[in-house]
Design a protein around this nucleic acid. Sequence first.
DNA 1: AGACAGGAGCAGT
DNA 2: ACTGCTCCTGTC
Length: 296
Amino acid sequence: MNAGGVQRRVEWFPVKGYALEATLAGGQAFRWRGHGDVWEGVVDGRWVRVRGSAEGLEAEWMEIAEGSEFAPALQRYLGLDLDLERVVATFPDDAPMRASCAACRGLRLLRQPAWECLASFICSSTKQIVQIQQIVSLLCERHGVPVPVPESHAEAYAFPTIPSIAGCTERQLRDCKLGFRAPYLLGTAQMLESGAVSLEAIDGLETPAAREVLMGFPGVGRKVADCVLLFGYGRQDAFPVDVWVQKALQRLYFEGKRRRTLRQLLEFSARHFGPYAGYAQQYLFQYARSHLGRAW
DNA sequence: AGACAGGAGCAGT
DNA sequence: ACTGCTCCTGTC
């Protein structure tokens, strides 16, 4: 499709060693498909394909409007405006972090649109990544608008808007396999649609206050709120603790000691991992998932 | 077959 | 402040 002067664009980002798979398919976002060095997704309503090489990233996308300048937004989404080496250098110099960094070289944090991030993580509770991908795909196919794609390419859809979700019935959402999360997502969309709370206003808040606002939405507890703060608002002091991170922290830092409660682990993390604790968390998470196995 | 998932929300202690 | 139970449903 190439109607209305809307064009295919290509841009080269000279960033070395970007770990595409770990970043795009590691559980931060749920819309990327691909393998190895080639990945496709939809970002801000644009179909995007990214190819990675040792020297950099080649991004290709379909513009949605004349004269629109998407490259900076994509750069921001991919987390390119950040000196990764300097961030990694702030991580504590201990054995678990060294192992995590070695295992996840080139892993970055994405900076996703807040609504998409919030909605996706409301869908995520007690679900594995594959299942979250299924749910999000169904939501997009059924309630998102089609976006321009290259000639003879399969259809792609934008993430559903707040009004389009707010206008759904609980039944429609359950049909997208949301289960008990359906009323949560619906309630959140309706709160936003009513204007009682705004996702933009959160930008101006300190992290603890921002977290409190997010936890006011149904289906949003501490963990989901921290994911949204980290992946959607770039708050690198947010530290989501899910069962994987919990197990990893317990095992890597408190081996043989009495089991720490969630609260204790949060306290430990806040003082141990430094200014980029959230970044460190993603490294630990990936490491725990890929190297420590599922049978602890 | 049956437990178990990258949790939230609630009651009970 | 912690524990334990329930909420859907696909996957292993």
